[in-house]
């Protein structure tokens, strides 16, 4: 239990540092940034209490917000996906999730991709809706969501592939 706890604490801190020091400054084509910190929410163990993950996601988003001067947009989006996560899990993994035998190290690539895609698109859509905050610019919102999501999904798949080998 202790080692699991420390793994997640370390992941929490490393993802925040990676996000605020490097990834927020990429600005590919002017405005496309990956928001890789949601990996923490995606890979959080399923058996744990849901209250904990909702609260931790809020904390994670708030820290990113304070560094980015963006009010509460990351906190809002993170809390939203943390709450909606069981729905995505059920859609992507089906019975494996219902029988509580799911482990992120051993799942198939295709269902992992579905899961990440759903999570990332939802997160980015809520994020950019809150950031731009006007429905007359819905095209801009969708455009930013699409491009940033592709970037985030690619990076999270690569990161999980790299780090899953070490755990085995």
């Amino acid at each position: 239990m202790n080692s699991i706890l420390s793994v997640h604490t370390v992941r929490f801190i490393i993802l925040i540092l990676l996000q605020v020091l490097i990834l927020n400054h990429i600005n590919f084509l002017g405005y496309i940034n990956p928001y890789i910190y949601i990996l923490f929410i995606a890979l959080y163990p399923i058996k744990n209490n849901r209250i904990t993950i909702i609260f931790l996601s809020f904390l994670l988003g708030m820290i990113i917000d304070i560094f980015q001067d963006s009010g509460g947009i990351h906190a809002g989006a993170s809390v939203f996906i943390a709450y909606a996560r069981p729905v995505f899990l059920k859609f992507a993994f089906g019975t494996m999730f219902e029988h509580q035998i799911l482990k992120f190290n051993t799942i198939e690539f295709s269902s992992k991709l579905t899961y990440f895609t759903l999570l990332t698109f939802t997160h980015h859509f809520v994020l950019f809706t809150l950031e731009i905050f006007s429905f007359s610019k819905i095209i801009l919102i969708l455009e930013k969501t699409l491009f940033s999501s592709i970037f985030t999904i690619l990076l999270s798949i690569i990161l999980t592939i790299i780090f899953s080998k070490k755990i085995k």
């Binding site: 609260f55 809020f58 708030m62 509460g72 906190a75 809390v79 809150l130």
Partner: peptide, 10 residues
Amino acid sequence: LFCIALTFTI
């Protein structure tokens, strides 16, 4: 928590 985040955003 979502309401708190929304308040900060506004």
